[in-house]
Nucleic acid binder design. Structure first.
Lengths: 201, 201, 201, 201
DNA sequence: CATGAATGAGTATTCATTCAT
DNA sequence: CATGAATGAATACTCATTCAT
């Protein structure tokens, strides 16, 4: 692929990310993607053979970016708790930067097995990244714990997406809260009523 | 509304729930809904004035059912930890029963402000139900903690939706795990490396 | 037909006249006609077997009223010029009263042979009424002259329909103008250039 | 616009003129227009963005043709009476050629302000063309006289439209009759009863 | 006679995709 | 490689009419 080709390929992905992310799959028109990318409608099909494939490519690029950035950040620290904090900060700041593009995930095409499969792979990869950290801490049931941690983060990101007044600082504060809660649990935060806590929990 | 009318109203909602839930909004045709409900196409429009309004009605009925069932279950126990377990069990079992209908949430229509507003209300109501429980335990920052707990549960439900071999018993086990992790945190589960835990967390 | 029936029959015609006249055939809904008439949708069909038949009935009643009123007015005078004035005044005042209901004529149903035939009959009857007057004056080619006179009047009524500021007095003035022009021609109104008028005209 | 585009544009207008003219707006289907034009349904929308816009374009082309031809014919003669004859001949021959397409005017779409506005403009332009001729003859009240003349012609054309046996020669004869009547009035044609003609007429 | 719930035929319009240039 | 004119499948919604009550 020539350098001009690569440039055009990227331009299409950028335009598609912008539109799919803000409008969703069904409300985005291929002609708009072409227009945004500054090329002709037919040209899009020289690079991506269908709208669904283009959506897949956009999703893939975004997810890979998420994981690569996470790896990079995790490599900057060695202590377990720092790593858990890094995960939380990354999750929330990533979505903070993408608050205008949430429909990439919420409004994906229906009935596309390939996309479902890819999203499962992505979730698995993300989980394994967290599992790896937890295993350094000797966790038992690391996969469930990883899922739980990711879930906490994912829900705590929601206000970021929907509350326009949410600041980057708020996001960061939430990240620290999440890491703390995950590590120490709600116990220390709840009163003595929990003295009744059954031992089997 | 006559009894025949109510019956037809319900039949349409049931058919729409089935189809929206499994195919998503965009891939569900009004003619299919009518056929499933055993009535003529035009009749659907006597009960719901548009496809979007029908989708809203289906969503509303489902969300209200979720909250009502949760309230009912919470009223059967009084101890804080039991309540947290009940929440977890409810969340996971509810989705377990609906594993074939996940697209009701994942593939909703785009650009529908009314739907977005309703989902925000629902999330708020769910969160408040959890907050109420946590306040009995004297929690500080109960809203963030509620969000975090719900997030954990939501992610832990994912395998239920996507893994066909997932059993109801697996769901129940996950619920207990989630409640335990939320209350005591990962600390007890991780090794001494966490002795380094910075105090500000 | 009972008195209640007659009342209902009339109520439907009145409602239909109102709606067909202001909205046109295609933009008027049978359900609206029923609602305006204060009866149920199905009841309309007890009196008129289709929308087209109802439109025919409305048209027929209106045209018959036009002709009957004209006859009545013509009977009040005996001089030829008075009668021509009466025709003109009638034509313009009739449409003046109906300015809100022009679509009864302009927006009739397409492809309805029965309606086309009726309108031809009406025009014929109107023309014959004028012909009868002209014959009293010993006109040759009375039919063409009648058509021409009616045509003049019909066009002169247009401003009435479309110009909201048009007053009843304006309408009356136009009627007198039309009668005068018809009788004496443009000749007296035009300058000597018409001295060149070829004899064969 | 390329030559192929212009050709297609024209083909659509021709097909639409044929169908709107004979069936009326509401009974003409866009798919039929496309079929008549020998193109695909979607292609029509590349040239005209809606059925209403297409109707407007057809109407506009027809009305402009009417006025242009009239101007051309009027320029071929200089004497007032000739010009009045030309107007009459044009009016009647034009509709004679279009006898199969009367519904372009009689069955237009309802509630289209743009169309109503355009038709008003057309009528005004037509009237002004006649007014210009009358002013050369020094007429007072030229606008009312123009309207009256046009009205005469318009009514005299009706038999052309509805009587299949009407010949082009008949049309021409009517045109001469109309011009004569307009200029000299009915007076010479009526008997002495008109001696009573009140002076104010 | 009166009702109004139910029917289902009918159509304008969109937009992903193709392919001749 | 690039274009953009052309295609045609696909679908929500309306409303005249019917008929069981």
């Amino acid at each position: 692929m020539s350098s001009a080709s690569i440039h055009k390929h990227t331009a299409i992905l950028d335009a598609a990310y912008e539109l799919f992310g803000s409008m969703g799959f069904y409300e985005t028109k291929m002609s708009e993607v072409a227009e945004h990318a500054g090329i002709a409608k037919g040209t899009v099909y020289l690079y991506f053979k269908s709208k669904e494939e283009l959506f897949m490519a956009v999703t893939r690029r975004d997810c890979e970016g998420f994981l690569e950035q996470l790896e990079g950040k995790l490599n900057t620290c060695s202590i377990l708790t720092d790593k858990l904090s890094v995960i939380a900060e990354h999750h929330l700041s990533y979505y903070y930067e993408r608050k205008r593009h949430t429909n990439l995930f919420f409004r994906a095409p229906n009935n596309n097995p390939e996309l479902v499969a890819y999203m499962a792979l992505f979730m698995e990869a993300y989980m394994q990244a967290v599992v790896k950290v937890l295993l350094e801490g000797g966790a038992s049931e690391p996969e469930l714990m990883a899922q739980a941690y990711i879930g906490m983060l994912d829900r705590l990101k929601m206000d970021i997406l929907f509350d326009p007044s949410f600041s980057e600082e708020d996001a960061s504060k939430r990240a620290r809260f999440a890491a703390g809660l995950f590590i120490t649990g709600a116990l220390g935060n709840l009163n003595s009523a929990l003295g009744d806590l059954p031992s089997e929990l």
